[in-house]
Design a protein around this nucleic acid. Structure first.
Lengths: 290, 290
DNA sequence: GAAAACCTCTGACCCCGGTCAGAGAACCTC
DNA sequence: GAGGTTCTCTGACCGGGGTCAGAGGTTTTC
């Protein structure tokens, strides 16, 4: 990686935070301490203090005092949780909601003021570039790790996968078919974003030089990042390193994005090799060592 | 402007600042208060306390205490200004320079760690998108205002313009030729970024329905933003509103970017209308009312 | 029903960023 | 050289963010 690229990113960050400081921090800290403002937003439609503390990462004493301040201003009421007398819940009063909406408006106005200086085409360019950066940064922070077949996080992914297939297949889906093989002879990968699982995939041996890729799935909230391609490439690389020269996989005609991904990645339709009723299409790819 | 666009910008800002908080603030405030870290950077190769105060916007008492803290840590020495005994100057010690370099490195490493998750093509995309945003934000914050012909900031622009022409014209340039007409019958525009002049331009009447555009210039530090085009459009719009149907302008063959801009903007080469020796090329455009 | 676990609040405390008033030294002007 | 100006430092002060220990309730467990 070039030092110049790093410098450019730093420059951009400097510029952007400076501009943003003018756009964001000030609007929040208008006449209210920042902590209070953040809390006002986070309370939203009410919440346990326990939750709020966790979400904002606050000390219990600190939170308590912030809430008192907001209560004194008539923006918040704190009551007892109906189910558990130890827990307390905060809710916004009408004045609190108005105040929050007001902060929100001011923020929006600032952004509008900025966008005002651009014409339509330029605005579209700006938004497109932002989407691009957002996408790339998310992708860059995703970690992909090898995990044992029984890993709980991987199973959680498979459960979500099964639920999705049940919705998407016209004939429904029997979750039993997704159970991972008793022992994975290849490897299973788990993708996490900020510690939360957002994708998985595995390959096993069908023969010493033939592998099957299965359970390749990306969580809906992480789609469009290019994570499917990333997982697929890692799986292929792992298999190739293990002597595999041919990769097969089966899929269902309802999974159109997956099929498109396979085609883009060099897979060609092949004779069916599986007896699963859900594998309506079979694909194959030879791995050239590179 | 669509509410949705504003929301998207806000979302991006939220995401980016969160990510950046992990990338930037922490590295600075590693084990040193933020104020001290900023000061460490700003001192650089030494500087008057007076300057530092102005640049960082600090109270003299506060600065004094920050410096004491850094001095106690052996990172900075404060001496007397050779020329003026009242003024004091701060310089980094070897340890101070090392510390600064260290902070710098840590920042760089964070960025490198982020970019690590991307392949070459994605990195290029990221940088391109950042450049795009940077450009558009700068353009969005530029203000363009009508100013009287004698405005000091406009004259400053013209002086810089003349200096540049002197360098770029093989035959040199006589600054007298740039003096604005005694009275501008049209209007003069001044573009400023953060209050600093970065461009200018004006039009005057050659006849009731014919205008000449002159002194269209963009400061080197603001080139590539699309500011030239912006100024040109505003001038044309202003002239059109005043009944002008034909705009003329003359330029020099050495000013290739300007010529390209005129061509892009619908100007066609025309017969020379001016007697200025620097106007080697003449352009003309009819304004259709729109 | 007693002990343990859980949740919240209170008071005390810390550091940092920031401001103010005034003292003191050096400089400039006349 | 007197008097005003400029620059810096010191001490005092404030508010906000943040942490800690412990008191006091409520709930769960045994």
């Amino acid at each position: 990686m070039e030092a110049e690229q790093i410098e450019q990113v730093r420059d951009f960050n400097r510029y952007y935070t400076r501009r943003l400081g003018l756009l964001t921090d000030q609007y929040l800290g208008q006449d209210r301490p920042l902590g209070q403002a953040r809390l006002l937003f986070e309370i939203g439609d009410g919440g346990d203090l326990r939750d709020l503390r966790a979400r904002l990462g606050l000390d219990s004493g600190y939170l308590s005092r912030l809430l008192r301040a907001l209560e004194d201003q008539g923006l918040v009421t704190v009551g007892v949780h109906p189910g558990d007398g130890r827990v307390r819940v905060a809710t916004l009063t009408a004045a609190g909601r108005a105040e929050r909406a007001d902060l929100d408006d001011r923020s929006r106005e600032r952004i509008a003021g900025l966008l005002d200086g651009l014409d339509d085409a330029q605005r579209d360019q700006l938004l497109a570039a932002q989407r691009q950066i957002h996408r790339l940064l998310r992708l860059a922070t995703v970690t992909v790790e090898r995990v044992p077949g029984a890993a709980e996080q991987a199973r959680a992914c498979l459960r979500r996968y099964a639920a999705e297939l049940g919705e998407r297949f016209p004939e429904g889906y029997d979750a039993a078919a997704l159970t991972p093989p008793a022992e994975v002879t290849g490897e299973q990968l788990l993708a996490c974003e900020d510690g939360i699982p957002v994708g998985c995939g595995l390959w096993t041996h069908l023969a010493p030089d033939v592998a099957e890729i299965r359970h390749l799935w990306v969580a809906p909230e992480a789609r469009g990042l290019g994570l499917g391609r990333l997982l697929l490439e890692r799986l292929e690389r792992g298999a190739a390193a293990d002597g595999v020269t041919t990769v097969r996989l089966g899929t269902h005609t309802a999974l159109t994005e997956a099929i498109a991904l396979y085609r883009r990645s060099g897979y060609r339709e092949a004779a069916d090799y599986s007896d699963s009723p859900y594998n309506q299409l079979a694909f194959e790819k030879s791995l050239q060592s590179s």
